[in-house]
Protein backbone atom coordinates (compact mmCIF):
# COMPACT_ATOMS: atom_id res chain seq x y z
CA UNK A 1 0.00 0.00 0.00
CA UNK A 2 2.70 2.42 1.09
CA UNK A 3 4.85 1.41 -1.87
CA UNK A 4 1.99 2.03 -4.28
CA UNK A 5 1.54 5.50 -2.80
CA UNK A 6 5.24 6.19 -3.24
CA UNK A 7 5.22 5.08 -6.87
CA UNK A 8 2.13 7.19 -7.50
CA UNK A 9 3.78 10.26 -5.98
CA UNK A 10 6.94 9.72 -8.01
CA UNK A 11 4.95 9.40 -11.19
CA UNK A 12 2.95 12.50 -10.30
CA UNK A 13 6.14 14.47 -9.86
CA UNK A 14 7.32 13.51 -13.33
CA UNK A 15 6.45 16.47 -15.60
CA UNK A 16 5.00 14.61 -18.64
CA UNK A 17 2.84 12.43 -16.42
CA UNK A 18 1.60 15.40 -14.44
CA UNK A 19 0.92 17.38 -17.61
CA UNK A 20 -1.33 14.66 -19.02
CA UNK A 21 -3.08 13.74 -15.77
CA UNK A 22 -3.82 17.39 -14.92
CA UNK A 23 -5.47 17.91 -18.32
CA UNK A 24 -7.88 15.07 -17.52
CA UNK A 25 -8.63 16.35 -14.03
CA UNK A 26 -9.22 20.04 -14.81
CA UNK A 27 -12.73 19.70 -16.36
CA UNK A 28 -13.94 17.69 -13.35
CA UNK A 29 -12.69 20.34 -10.95
CA UNK A 30 -14.27 23.12 -12.99
CA UNK A 31 -17.67 21.42 -13.34
CA UNK A 32 -17.99 20.32 -9.70
CA UNK A 33 -16.68 23.66 -8.45
CA UNK A 34 -19.03 25.72 -10.60
CA UNK A 35 -22.04 23.55 -9.65
CA UNK A 36 -21.34 24.10 -5.95
CA UNK A 37 -20.78 27.83 -6.49
CA UNK A 38 -24.09 28.03 -8.38
CA UNK A 39 -25.86 26.26 -5.50
CA UNK A 40 -24.19 28.48 -2.90
CA UNK A 41 -24.98 31.67 -4.80
CA UNK A 42 -28.66 30.88 -5.36
CA UNK A 43 -29.26 29.42 -1.90
CA UNK A 44 -27.23 32.16 -0.23
CA UNK A 45 -28.96 35.01 -2.05
CA UNK A 46 -32.55 33.76 -2.11
CA UNK A 47 -33.12 30.88 0.31
CA UNK A 48 -31.02 31.63 3.38
CA UNK A 49 -32.92 33.83 5.85
CA UNK A 50 -31.75 37.38 6.49
CA UNK A 51 -29.61 37.93 9.59
CA UNK A 52 -31.14 39.25 12.83
CA UNK A 53 -28.63 42.10 13.05
CA UNK A 54 -27.38 42.72 9.54
CA UNK A 55 -30.44 41.91 7.43
CA UNK A 56 -29.62 41.11 3.82
CA UNK A 57 -26.16 42.72 4.01
CA UNK A 58 -24.93 39.54 5.71
CA UNK A 59 -25.19 37.72 2.34
CA UNK A 60 -21.84 39.24 1.40
CA UNK A 61 -20.44 36.50 3.66
CA UNK A 62 -20.98 34.02 0.78
CA UNK A 63 -18.29 35.79 -1.26
CA UNK A 64 -16.12 37.28 1.44
CA UNK A 65 -15.44 34.23 3.61
CA UNK A 66 -14.57 31.79 0.77
CA UNK A 67 -12.32 34.43 -0.82
CA UNK A 68 -10.55 35.16 2.46
CA UNK A 69 -10.12 31.44 3.18
CA UNK A 70 -8.68 30.83 -0.30
CA UNK A 71 -6.31 33.77 0.01
CA UNK A 72 -4.76 32.06 3.04
CA UNK A 73 -5.06 28.58 1.55
CA UNK A 74 -3.17 29.65 -1.58
CA UNK A 75 -0.44 31.15 0.55
CA UNK A 76 -0.14 27.99 2.64
CA UNK A 77 0.11 25.88 -0.51
CA UNK A 78 2.85 28.19 -1.78
CA UNK A 79 4.78 28.07 1.48
CA UNK A 80 4.59 24.26 1.69
CA UNK A 81 5.56 23.88 -1.98
CA UNK A 82 8.41 26.36 -1.60
CA UNK A 83 9.65 24.39 1.41
CA UNK A 84 9.46 21.07 -0.44
CA UNK A 85 11.18 22.64 -3.44
CA UNK A 86 14.03 23.97 -1.32
CA UNK A 87 14.56 20.85 0.76
CA UNK A 88 14.03 18.06 -1.80
CA UNK A 89 14.99 20.12 -4.86
CA UNK A 90 11.74 19.16 -6.50
CA UNK A 91 11.10 21.32 -9.54
CA UNK A 92 7.40 20.59 -9.75
CA UNK A 93 6.98 22.00 -6.23
CA UNK A 94 8.52 25.31 -7.33
CA UNK A 95 6.21 25.31 -10.34
CA UNK A 96 3.20 24.90 -8.01
CA UNK A 97 4.35 27.82 -5.85
CA UNK A 98 4.85 30.04 -8.90
CA UNK A 99 1.45 29.07 -10.30
CA UNK A 100 -0.44 29.70 -7.05
CA UNK A 101 0.79 33.29 -6.57
CA UNK A 102 -1.41 35.18 -9.07
CA UNK A 103 -4.45 33.19 -7.94
CA UNK A 104 -3.73 33.99 -4.30
CA UNK A 105 -3.38 37.65 -5.20
CA UNK A 106 -6.76 37.66 -6.98
CA UNK A 107 -8.58 36.05 -4.06
CA UNK A 108 -6.86 38.33 -1.54
CA UNK A 109 -8.05 41.28 -3.61
CA UNK A 110 -11.59 39.82 -3.65
CA UNK A 111 -11.55 39.32 0.13
CA UNK A 112 -10.34 42.88 0.75
CA UNK A 113 -12.79 44.42 -1.73
CA UNK A 114 -15.86 42.55 -0.47
CA UNK A 115 -14.80 43.17 3.13
CA UNK A 116 -14.72 46.86 2.33
CA UNK A 117 -18.14 46.73 0.66
CA UNK A 118 -19.49 44.90 3.71
CA UNK A 119 -17.83 47.24 6.19
CA UNK A 120 -19.35 50.41 4.79
CA UNK A 121 -23.00 49.75 5.72
CA UNK A 122 -22.34 47.62 8.83
CA UNK A 123 -19.34 49.08 10.63
CA UNK A 124 -19.68 52.53 9.10
CA UNK A 125 -16.37 52.61 7.23
CA UNK A 126 -14.88 51.29 3.98
CA UNK A 127 -11.50 50.79 5.56
CA UNK A 128 -10.05 51.14 9.05
CA UNK A 129 -6.37 52.05 9.00
CA UNK A 130 -4.43 50.13 11.57
CA UNK A 131 -7.00 47.43 12.21
CA UNK A 132 -4.97 44.22 12.76
CA UNK A 133 -7.17 41.90 10.64
CA UNK A 134 -7.47 44.33 7.75
CA UNK A 135 -3.81 45.31 7.85
CA UNK A 136 -2.45 41.74 7.98
CA UNK A 137 -4.64 40.75 5.00
CA UNK A 138 -3.40 43.81 3.07
CA UNK A 139 0.19 42.83 3.87
CA UNK A 140 -0.53 39.43 2.35
CA UNK A 141 -1.57 41.14 -0.90
CA UNK A 142 1.79 42.94 -0.91
CA UNK A 143 3.60 39.66 -0.21
CA UNK A 144 1.95 38.16 -3.30
CA UNK A 145 2.97 41.21 -5.37
CA UNK A 146 6.50 41.11 -3.95
CA UNK A 147 6.79 37.40 -4.79
CA UNK A 148 5.62 37.91 -8.36
CA UNK A 149 7.88 40.90 -9.04
CA UNK A 150 10.85 39.10 -7.49
CA UNK A 151 10.28 36.15 -9.84
CA UNK A 152 9.89 38.46 -12.80
CA UNK A 153 13.19 40.15 -11.89
CA UNK A 154 15.31 36.99 -12.08
CA UNK A 155 15.77 35.43 -15.51
CA UNK A 156 17.28 32.14 -14.45
CA UNK A 157 14.44 29.87 -13.32
CA UNK A 158 16.35 27.93 -10.64
CA UNK A 159 17.62 31.15 -9.05
CA UNK A 160 14.16 32.69 -9.16
CA UNK A 161 12.75 29.55 -7.52
CA UNK A 162 15.18 29.72 -4.61
CA UNK A 163 15.01 33.46 -3.96
CA UNK A 164 11.22 33.61 -4.15
CA UNK A 165 10.87 30.50 -1.99
CA UNK A 166 12.81 32.23 0.78
CA UNK A 167 10.59 35.31 0.51
CA UNK A 168 7.39 33.28 0.73
CA UNK A 169 8.65 31.24 3.70
CA UNK A 170 9.62 34.38 5.62
CA UNK A 171 6.21 35.88 4.88
CA UNK A 172 4.42 32.71 6.03
CA UNK A 173 4.46 34.08 9.58
CA UNK A 174 1.69 36.41 8.42
CA UNK A 175 -0.83 33.57 7.88
CA UNK A 176 -1.36 32.68 11.56
CA UNK A 177 -1.25 36.40 12.36
CA UNK A 178 -4.22 36.95 10.03
CA UNK A 179 -6.18 34.13 11.64
CA UNK A 180 -5.51 35.05 15.26
CA UNK A 181 -5.42 38.85 14.81
CA UNK A 182 -9.04 39.14 15.94
CA UNK A 183 -8.24 37.31 19.17
CA UNK A 184 -4.85 38.84 19.97
CA UNK A 185 -5.69 42.50 19.41
CA UNK A 186 -8.74 44.71 19.57
CA UNK A 187 -10.13 44.58 16.04
CA UNK A 188 -13.25 45.94 14.44
CA UNK A 189 -13.55 42.54 12.82
CA UNK A 190 -15.55 39.94 14.75
CA UNK A 191 -14.15 36.57 15.81
CA UNK A 192 -14.30 33.38 13.72
CA UNK A 193 -17.79 32.01 13.00
CA UNK A 194 -16.94 28.59 11.55
CA UNK A 195 -13.67 27.48 13.14
CA UNK A 196 -14.35 27.98 16.82
CA UNK A 197 -14.88 26.12 20.06
CA UNK A 198 -18.40 24.71 20.32
CA UNK A 199 -18.96 24.50 16.58
CA UNK A 200 -20.09 27.05 13.99
CA UNK A 201 -22.14 29.98 15.31
CA UNK A 202 -24.45 30.18 12.32
CA UNK A 203 -27.91 28.79 11.56
CA UNK A 204 -28.00 25.64 9.41
CA UNK A 205 -30.01 27.29 6.61
CA UNK A 206 -27.28 29.96 6.40
CA UNK A 207 -24.42 27.50 6.94
CA UNK A 208 -25.02 25.03 4.09
CA UNK A 209 -24.77 27.57 1.25
CA UNK A 210 -21.60 28.89 2.90
CA UNK A 211 -20.05 25.42 3.07
CA UNK A 212 -21.10 24.88 -0.55
CA UNK A 213 -19.38 28.11 -1.57
CA UNK A 214 -16.20 27.24 0.34
CA UNK A 215 -15.98 23.78 -1.21
CA UNK A 216 -16.94 25.13 -4.65
CA UNK A 217 -14.28 27.86 -4.46
CA UNK A 218 -11.72 25.24 -3.42
CA UNK A 219 -12.49 22.99 -6.40
CA UNK A 220 -12.55 25.97 -8.77
CA UNK A 221 -9.19 27.06 -7.36
CA UNK A 222 -7.91 23.50 -7.87
CA UNK A 223 -8.81 23.66 -11.56
CA UNK A 224 -7.12 27.05 -11.95
CA UNK A 225 -4.02 25.88 -10.11
CA UNK A 226 -3.69 22.74 -12.24
CA UNK A 227 -4.13 24.81 -15.42
CA UNK A 228 -1.47 27.27 -14.32
CA UNK A 229 0.96 24.53 -13.23
CA UNK A 230 0.55 22.95 -16.68
CA UNK A 231 1.60 26.20 -18.35
CA UNK A 232 4.48 26.54 -15.90
CA UNK A 233 5.64 22.93 -16.51
CA UNK A 234 5.46 23.42 -20.28
CA UNK A 235 7.67 26.50 -20.03
CA UNK A 236 10.20 24.86 -17.71
CA UNK A 237 10.44 21.73 -19.88
CA UNK A 238 10.52 23.62 -23.18
CA UNK A 239 13.83 22.04 -24.21
CA UNK A 240 12.88 18.48 -23.26
CA UNK A 241 12.15 15.65 -25.65
CA UNK A 242 8.63 14.99 -24.36
CA UNK A 243 7.53 18.56 -24.97
CA UNK A 244 8.97 18.36 -28.47
CA UNK A 245 7.10 15.14 -29.14
CA UNK A 246 3.94 16.55 -27.61
CA UNK A 247 3.91 19.69 -29.72
CA UNK A 248 5.35 18.54 -33.03
CA UNK A 249 3.65 15.17 -32.75
CA UNK A 250 0.28 16.86 -32.56
CA UNK A 251 0.81 19.27 -35.43
CA UNK A 252 2.55 16.76 -37.69
Amino acid sequence: MFRHMWIFLHKLASPPHFYGLAAKMIPWFYVSGLLLIAYGTIAGLFYAPADYQQGDAFRIIYVHVPAAYLSMMAYSIMAISAGIGLIWRMKLAHAVAAAAAPLGAWFTFLALATGSIWGRPMWGTWWEWGDPRLTSELIMLFLYFGYMSLRAAIDETSKADKASAVLILVGAVNVPIIHFSVEWWSSLHQGPTLVREGGPAIETAMLYPLLGMILGFTLFFGALLLARVRAEVLHRERRSRWVRNLILGESA
Binding site: Q53, T125, E128, T193, I202, E203
Partner: peptide, 10 residues
Protein backbone atom coordinates in the same frame (compact mmCIF):
# COMPACT_ATOMS: atom_id res chain seq x y z
CA UNK B 1 -18.09 52.59 14.16
CA UNK B 2 -20.31 49.65 15.11
CA UNK B 3 -19.07 46.14 15.81
CA UNK B 4 -21.09 43.01 15.39
CA UNK B 5 -20.55 39.56 16.82
CA UNK B 6 -19.71 36.33 15.00
CA UNK B 7 -23.22 34.85 15.36
CA UNK B 8 -25.53 34.66 12.37
CA UNK B 9 -29.21 33.70 12.72
CA UNK B 10 -32.63 34.71 11.45
Amino acid sequence: LAKHDENYMP
